Every structure is written in C-alpha cells, then in structure tokens.
Computed example of a mutant assay.
Amino acid sequence: MVSTGQSSSLRSPLAAGARLATGQGDAKFVEFIDVEKSYGNFHAVRRLNLSIGRGEFLTFLGPSGSGKTTTLNMLAGFERPSEGVITLDGKSVDRLPPYERNIGMVFQNYALFPHMSVADNVAFPLSVRKLPRAEIGPRVVRALEMVQLERFKDRKPAQLSGGQQQRVALARALVFQPTLVLMDEPLGALDKKLREHMQIELMQIHQMLGVTIVYVTHDQSEALTMSDRVAIFESGAIDQIGTPDELYNKPATAFVAGFIGENNALDGVVERVVGNQCLVALPTGLKTTAMAIGDIRPGAPVHLTIRPERIGLSGAGADSDNRFQATVDGRIYHGDHQRLLARLASGQILTVKVGPEATMAAGEAIDLCWPISDCRAFPAGAVPDGSSANIGSVS
C-alpha cells in the first residue's frame, strides 16, 4: 500500500485539491440543517442537524433501519429531503442531481462495468465529464498506482479478486478529484482478513489525500478502527456522535453503551444521588455506586453497564470502589486473554476479561471489583436488539 511519504508525482493532481482544502479548517464542509425524510407515515430520518469537517473521516453506524443509509443517499442526491437543507462547501445541494455534486461513491457491490477493462472502469468518470483524452490516461495511471493495481489495468473485473475489485471501485471514486467520497458498506462482501487489510488501506489513502469521507457500516469494529468521529444512528436520529474513544468509554445513552463493544448489564433502583454519582440497590439487596448519566433520581429504576475489561479481581488494583462476591462458572480461552464467567448471588453471570495465565477453576469463589468511574447508570429502558450487553446470561 502507498505510504504517506509517497512522492508528489502520485499525490498530484489527485491530492492537490484535497491538500489545499484541509488547510482551511472548515468544520462545516457538509451540513444537515433540520433534515427529515419521510415515506408516507414512516419517518426514516428525524430532524437531523449535523456538521462534517473538511478532510474528516466520519462513519454512520447503527442497526438496520436506523436511517444511516437514507442519510447518505440524501447527501449523494439519490434521495431528496422531505424537510430541511443539506449544504456542501456552503452551498445548498438539495436540488442538484448526483452528477453535479462532485461526489465519489463506493458501494458494497462495487458497481463495476463487467465488459470494461480495469483502466476503462477507472476512466469512466473522466470520460463522462469530457476531459481531454491526453489528461485521462495519466490520471488513470496515478489512480491505479495509488491502489497498487497498475499491472492489472487490462483485466476485466471478473478476473480480479474481491479485494482487487474493491480497490478498482475506490480508484474510480477518487480519479476525478471529488470534494467528498461516500462509502456505503464497501467492505461488507469481503472475508474478515481481507476486510481488515482494506481498512488499513482506506485509512492510509485518507491520510495521504486528505479527502472528506462519509462511511456507512453496521460493523462497529470497522467504525472504531477507521473513523475520526462516529455518528450512532437509532430510529432515524443520531443518538451520539464523537470520537471512537468517547463513544466506547463515555457512552451518553444506554443504547450506545449496549451497541458499542461488549457490556455487562445490571438493573437496580436509585437510593440516592450525590453530584454526578448515584447509589443503586440491586435486586439481591447489594448496592453499587455508579456514574449518573441523564435524568437519574432517587427511587427511579436504572440500567447499569460495566465493560468486561473494567472488572477486576479483588486486590488487583487500589481503585476498587465496588466489590462483589461471585463464583466461577467457566472460562473461555481467547489466546491473548480469557473471559471469565462469574456468577453473582442473584444468579446473573458477568463476563470478566482476565489474562491468559488465569487458572481459576469452575466453582471457585472470587471477589469482583470495579471503579465508580467505569460503572454507568442510565434511566431504565430496553437494551437495543443485537447489542452485546449481558443481561442475566452469557452473550
């Protein structure tokens, strides 16, 4: 893959516009202002307000039907907002057809022309824009060099692997120097190993070109790995937007806490609130102190979340504000770590990440502990379908 230290012959002219653009520091390169999209009585997108910075890699993440792809399609011009305004570089694009928005698109199915060679596929956006033939050739060569496919330029798409076809689609999306590139589940058809390799390649290309990328996926690992920021969609609205670190370590809602990463879940009732912390009574009568997130009041039911790696064994650290007795139910070996299944007195099982050297046997009594800062209390509500939270069972 091309490194960020590649010579200027590769970076120009593909990267020239992007390098100038990123220097402007425009935090509102793309804006959604009170945007809604309805299909009859169904609201696919609800009152969306979002700003995307120039040169940013922003990912839309969420379950099926959450509104992320509809939002991308409105930005691309394939759908028109029912209400609100979408701007690109300060200009409204609501009534511009897709081909006039100067946006590159990469789809999950690649959308390559099977009867055309790789070179002709990449050249297609330049041909429809009626660029001189003398300019098309060098641009195609540079684009294929960028994705390391120059030696395959005469092959047909069917003669390439899935990863190679995806790189052709990426080269075609970048060859005409778009101001913005939209990607809709572009790696979804690839196997795990190739998908992870392509994630690295996409990050390197983004760093090299500085182009603005809006990416749609339902794969949270993909989103956390690649993105500057991630917007979590739920029921047609953004539930939370932030850096991967913010979303993982400081989820603002129970939905985000359950959707991102793995979480243990406990339910209880608030006994008292002091500042940004609350004391919660669990059904067995045990009590734990947690960070109060949202509208938390005494007497109200709450939903607690603690990540498996934040739970320690008693004595493993000084910052152990909450301690509980448990019994080892089993261990799952993962090579670099193990997942300890710990059963509380209530019968609920918590997952605890421990080192590969751990030797606790089934039935052994252990003490669990976790800091207040790593236990978050949300107003009681349903955990989202497909989340990785553990609620009374092992996930």
Rank of each mutant, 00 (worst) to 15 (best):
V141Q: 13
L75V: 00
P81W: 02
G23Y: 12
E56R: 05
A27H: 13
E100K: 13
P132H: 06
L61Q: 10
S82C: 10
A111I: 01
V45Y: 02
L96M: 13
Y99I: 09
R139M: 04
L88T: 03
G104E: 00
V30T: 00
M146S: 07
M146G: 04
V128F: 07
V147W: 01
A111S: 01
H43P: 01
A134Y: 08
T70Y: 00
G65I: 08
N121T: 05
R46Q: 09
K68D: 02
G53Y: 04
F107V: 01
P98V: 01
S51W: 12
G23K: 15
M105L: 02
L50C: 07
I33T: 11
L50K: 03
P132C: 08
P138V: 02
R142P: 15
L126T: 07
R46G: 08
E150T: 15
Y39W: 07
S38C: 14
D120W: 05
V106E: 00
I136L: 04
A27G: 10
V106G: 00
N41I: 11
P132R: 09
M116E: 01
A76V: 00
M105I: 04
E36V: 05
R54L: 00
P125K: 04
Q108S: 04
G55L: 07
L61M: 11
S127N: 10
T22Q: 15
Q148F: 08
Y110R: 11
G40L: 06
M116G: 01
E83M: 12
P114N: 01
F78S: 08
G65T: 09
V45H: 01
T59R: 10
S66L: 12
R139Q: 02
M146I: 09
N109K: 06
T22G: 15
A76S: 06
T87E: 14
V93A: 04
L88Q: 12
L149Q: 06
K130P: 07
